[in-house]
């Protein structure tokens, strides 16, 4: 089993970026030790410039060691985690989450005789 990455895609006004990052620091990241291998790898923004009347996208890249740790992450998402996302949802326009694997590895396929 290989490392699993989780990518949060948060579309928001440029002036909301700092607020979301502050919420992240204050309410989400302190809970990570209880979620074992879950770690925040990157915080990106695109485009890397503030445009007039346009949103930016904040990308949060997370990592867990393997599928067992993925379920640990799932099982340790407490009310604080949900409060964090509820507050983020008040600040953003839209949000999606993606689960990602290593693109160099062959993708599991449907069984031929399924």
């Amino acid at each position: 089993m290989s490392t699993i990455h989780i990518l949060d895609e948060i579309v928001l006004a440029p002036d909301a970026i700092a607020q979301v990052l502050q919420l992240l620091e204050e309410h989400y990241l302190p809970g990570l030790p209880a979620r074992q291998t879950l770690s925040l790898q990157q915080r990106w923004v695109s485009p890397p410039v503030q445009l007039e009347n346009q949103n930016n996208t904040l990308w949060l890249l997370w990592e867990v060691t393997d599928a067992y740790c993925y379920y640990t992450m799932r099982g340790t998402a407490d009310e604080g985690v949900m409060r964090f996302w509820a507050e983020v949802d008040q600040l953003c326009q839209e949000r999606r989450r993606h689960v990602m694997g290593d693109a160099t590895q062959p993708l599991p396929q449907p069984l031929e005789d399924a």
Binding site: M1, I4, A67, Y68, Y70, Y71, R74, A77, V81, M82, W85, D89, R95, R96, R97, V99, G101, P108
Partner: peptide, 21 residues
């Protein structure tokens, strides 16, 4: 069943409150 990517990387999203959509 539990360790297959179809489970944790696909179906499990439907059970996970951290997936908003």
């Amino acid at each position: 069943y539990l360790l297959h990517p179809y489970h944790w990387g696909w179906v499990d999203r439907r059970f996970d409150p951290e997936f908003p959509d």
